[in-house]
């Protein structure tokens, strides 16, 4: 029915190296993004003004109650994380700003808060892997 194994041409990224810039301090999206870039054999390089530069904004997290447990305490939350991405080369703005968004839900069990807060951490890790793959797909679609 027309499906073929994804070949390297449609999956590869049209550049071997990339500069990744984001706000200072801990930036949790960095690890899954490095792994996704490495899987598309792209290496990170230090800041220089010849290579492509992907600039990511700080994460914007929004937590919304979507269902309530029996004691009118929050039961299920929807967590949405969005970032802004821009692409530059030697200071020249190539693409963006693009907003990338991913979301998921998790339950908080009022009786076991510390247990369920790690549930939120696991969901955040999944959301960041999803954001990383969105970045890769968008980079593939950029015509350089």
């Amino acid at each position: 029915c027309g499906f073929t194994l994804r070949g390297s041409e449609s999956a590869a990224l049209p550049f071997p190296t990339l500069i990744l810039s984001h706000p200072a301090g801990p930036y949790p999206l960095r690890a899954p993004l490095i792994e996704a870039l490495r899987a598309s054999n792209v290496d990170l390089v230090e800041n220089n003004n010849s290579d492509l530069q992907l600039v990511l904004s700080a994460e914007e997290q929004e937590r919304r109650t979507i269902s309530i447990n029996t004691r009118a305490g929050a039961g299920q939350y929807e967590l949405t994380v969005s970032i802004q991405a821009n692409l530059y080369r030697a200071g020249q703005h190539l693409a963006g700003p693009e907003t990338l968004t991913a979301s998921g839900t998790f339950y908080e069990d009022t009786a076991n808060i510390s247990g369920s807060s790690s549930g939120q951490e696991l969901l955040l890790a999944d959301i960041r892997r999803e954001l990383a793959s969105q970045v890769i797909r968008r980079l593939q679609a950029v015509s350089l």
């Binding site: 447990n69 029996t70 004691r71 039961g75 339950y107 069990d109 009022t110 009786a111 076991n112």
Partner: peptide, 16 residues
């Protein structure tokens, strides 16, 4: 299945 360990307060159906 919600409120894992607790019997819900009386007269209340815990199913969401």
């Amino acid at each position: 299945r919600t409120d894992v360990f607790l019997q819900a307060p009386p007269l209340l159906d815990p199913v969401i």
